[in-house]
Design a protein around this nucleic acid. Structure first.
Lengths: 134, 134
DNA sequence: CTTACTGTATATATCTTTATACACAGTATA
DNA sequence: TATACTGTGTATAAAGATATATACAGTAAG
């Protein structure tokens, strides 16, 4: 089972927190099905170029949130997530990120038209990527 | 001299890094004039409810970047910032935040129309705040 | 020179990350 | 059913980054 996690080396956000946040998102959004057996802490750590203990902490924290079940000697499985929790999480996470971006614009005295134009440009680029560009 | 810094207690980003990032932004964007005497580390720390040492580290780091001049017994002053540096910084910081927000949307399978609608709603709210709402 | 303000240095506690060694569960094989 | 092997999660100790309190040192003004 391959789990798509993107680590930003330059971020000030701690490593375990980046992993936890992204894995939580994948689970709550249903991109990883209930009862899926996650990679072992060793396999996951190897893929992320980090320590086994760091992954262990993520699994432990998410188990504390009720998102994972873990059983020594067997592995770690994803738990059931209710639909209402799912929807709430989706909306909040996107709204939060957009709000932060707009705050950044305001703090830099971006005009409303300017930030709208920037936004639409980047949306177009990200939703319709051209070959040879990111 | 009052410096507007917003601390997010819930963020995983270290405190000194939040302060440093925002103060750097204020200086480079010219929202604090060249040669302005910044608050003393004690006064600033008191306003942010944090330790003197945390503010001290921020001043020290930004002095290392050439954005501040500091003189023992006298205080800490903002240095000169070139126009080209200013413009580059503004564009990059906003583009970066918008890109992150859109990535968050994509990772959550937000449709292009959906994220555009969300964005315009939040822009309207933030640029034209109603009384009684944030 | 005293006083009250600056920044500075040292020691301490907590958080983050790691390395290493250990204990438990499944499976093949005798 | 033993036994050995390979997989799993677990516990302990140590190093680095982060945040703090407290004591030290330079500067300016009375």
């Amino acid at each position: 089972m391959w789990i798509p996690i993107q680590i930003d080396e330059n971020s000030a956000e701690p490593l375990y927190h980046q992993i936890k946040t992204q894995l939580r998102s994948l689970i709550i959004n249903g991109q990883i099905e209930e009862n899926t057996l996650l990679p072992s802490i060793r396999e996951f750590a190897s893929g992320l170029n980090c320590s086994v203990i760091t992954v262990r902490r993520v699994y432990q924290d998410l188990e504390g949130e009720g998102l994972l079940r873990t059983k020594q000697g067997t592995g770690t499985f994803v738990a059931k997530v209710g639909d209402s929790k799912r929807e709430t999480f989706k909306r909040e996470s996107v709204e939060d990120a957009l709000g932060k971006a707009i705050d950044a614009g305001i703090s830099v005295q971006c005009s409303e038209e300017e930030i709208k134009r920037l936004f639409l440009d980047i949306v177009a680029r990200k939703y319709h990527p051209k070959i040879g560009k990111e």
